[in-house]
Design a protein around this nucleic acid. Sequence first.
DNA 1: TTAAAAAGTTTAACTATGCTAAACAAAAAG
DNA 2: CTTTTTGTTTAGCATAGTTAAACTTTTTAA
Lengths: 243, 243
Amino acid sequence: MRLLQSLTRGLRALDILYSAEGPVRLTEMADALGVEKSNASHILKTLVASGYAVQDDSRRYVAEPRKEEPCQGHSLSEVVTCKELCRPALESLVRETGECAHLAVLVDTRVWYIDKVDSTLPLKVDHPIGSLSPLHCTALGKAFLAFGDATLPEEKARYTPKTITDTDALMAEIARTRSRGFSVDDEEFAPGIRCAARPVFDARGQMIAALGVSGPSVRIDDARLAELGELVRAVPITPIQGA
Amino acid sequence: MRLLQSLTRGLRALDILYSAEGPVRLTEMADALGVEKSNASHILKTLVASGYAVQDDSRRYVAEPRKEEPCQGHSLSEVVTCKELCRPALESLVRETGECAHLAVLVDTRVWYIDKVDSTLPLKVDHPIGSLSPLHCTALGKAFLAFGDATLPEEKARYTPKTITDTDALMAEIARTRSRGFSVDDEEFAPGIRCAARPVFDARGQMIAALGVSGPSVRIDDARLAELGELVRAVPITPIQGA
DNA sequence: TTAAAAAGTTTAACTATGCTAAACAAAAAG
DNA sequence: CTTTTTGTTTAGCATAGTTAAACTTTTTAA
């Protein structure tokens, strides 16, 4: 086995840049690597040319933060910020529709309810905050399937006669959701409950949450469900600042 | 300026590994770089030797995730797993003590309540799930200050006459908390409420959540508070698997 | 301001390094 | 078991990478 000297040294230089407090001088680097400064210069220039480092205005070198995936998913901080920014939207939806509104985020293969505003009517839906629901039979879950990067679960449990358990049928439903701009749940998770939901995006255009309105079927016929969908879709949300 | 060929190629190989879906075969890499496979082999071996990649059992290469900060904080998935694993502890504490139990995670400068089990008694504490509270005057927050990596907030608002707003006094309180093994809140956030809390750690030994029991002061004298603290500290929690 | 020193870049030239090619070894497929 | 594919090692030559020295630029000192 033949280890490549210049590559080994270059990677070592990268290590040094990563673990350094601040910017690193050429001479320091040459000393640290135990090579001539001309050589260190070539190494560092190569790191810069490959996008692994940058040279600041005082000619010192800094490691370029790896872009790859800044971390998969959203941080707790982003999620809470989103929750707080979506609150007014939830409240105004409840005011306008009389039905309750929910906010949820994607966690692996389920949605996690992180906020809600209750309906004031005596007959009402109540998914408690902190509860988790499946993706394939809830409006919030379908929003993640249609607009987020959730993957269709293999297992699709049946909760009601209306639950869509066929993969192809669900794919078609998701395609419809995309073109419509909002997702619906027509008594697919719990009998007597209908729901319409939309995606909420972060500053990078990544879906971070789903926001929905749900109520009892007795108050929500097809026309009303479409109306709720449009209202949910149109409700203004303060843009979430990039992290 | 002289750019180093083998270093440039090595960094390009790293890029390919980082952006690849799964593990990369030697031959693919050689093709992608436009070099002989023997050369690609040397490059990859060098990346491995420098700790930038690893070779799996089927001899394919994967980029080693940059260790530095594996990502700050916990993922939603870890948090929900923790919540579900802590549920039995919350329930058993409520059964044993008659008071209510809460679970919270750290979000920036506040704690976020993500689960609770209510007391069955008519006079009870109720921090709703989804709400956020400050660190310096709650038992859950103090647990993060003492056992987690929360930093002491500059602004320490006064909520009750007992709220500790002096930095030195709070530091002393945190030191006491560390040696005691659990934190307490003696009517520092809301009059008439006392609370005892403990940290919950993940597989890496990082604090992920705080778990506490709280009740009305009329039922909780100093001796009872110490007793609750010991109960909270001793309650068994299923270890959280590493991510 | 000027001179001296230090830090960084470029050039030149030699040889050790890192390529290609080919042989060898080890898995995987048939 | 044989064949094919994939990965590793070896050999040897050409060149990429090293050192050393010249040259620039920036910083420090006078």
